[in-house]
């Protein structure tokens, strides 16, 4: 995992990514009890290509040059299947900006804040997202003021209340 994070950091330093942060089940596991997952979801802000397009192709090319080829929707980096997810809405844009810089042993990494993980789960709305919200709500000390601000800005208050009420 540490080597996987080193590769992500090197991609960011090289400008292949503008910014990354771990999300999904592993992002949640940073804050909650460990939950089963087989992939590492990494949200990325991509640099604009000369034509103004945002595409994962340059990222995949850079990974191939480092010896990591994509397999379907994943790229296995140092033994860990990584799914790169470009930020696709304003909530994720905000989540990436506000993501926390952390250390994994001695390796720097970045993880979405618990409040953003909860909001993203509410927005995505699947059964497993509901379970993630429950775990985050029960096992982390989320900043509720901050969370309510996120939910309000992105029109997610109603579902949050339905799920947690």
């Amino acid at each position: 995992m540490e080597k996987t994070l080193e590769v992500l950091n090197s991609l960011e330093r090289a400008g292949v990514l503008r910014r990354y942060a771990i999300g999904g089940a592993m992002g949640a596991t940073f804050y909650t009890e460990p939950v089963l997952t087989f992939d590492l979801d990494v949200f990325v802000v991509l640099p604009e290509s000369p034509g103004g397009l945002l595409t994962l192709s340059p990222l995949y090319e850079a990974l191939r040059a480092r010896g990591f080829a994509e397999e379907g929707e994943f790229v296995t980096i140092e033994g860990v299947p990584v799914q790169f997810l470009p930020v696709y809405n304003e909530l994720l844009q905000e989540a990436l900006v506000e993501a926390r810089d952390v250390l994994y042993d001695s390796t720097p990494a970045r993880v979405l804040r618990a409040e953003h993980l909860a909001a993203v789960a509410v927005q995505t709305g699947r059964l497993k997202d509901r379970e993630r919200v429950r775990l985050l709500n029960e096992q982390t000390d989320m900043d509720l003021e901050y969370l309510l601000g996120i939910l309000r800005r992105h029109g997610l208050e109603q579902r949050w209340n339905d799920w947690t009420g």
Binding site: M1, F38, D105, Q139
Partner: peptide, 25 residues
Amino acid sequence: RRRDLASLPFPQKVQIVVQLQRMAA
């Protein structure tokens, strides 16, 4: 016990996730 697990350092939690993967795969 679940709260204790939640408070473990992240690298230790990753080890547990891998153990779960080995059992579930």
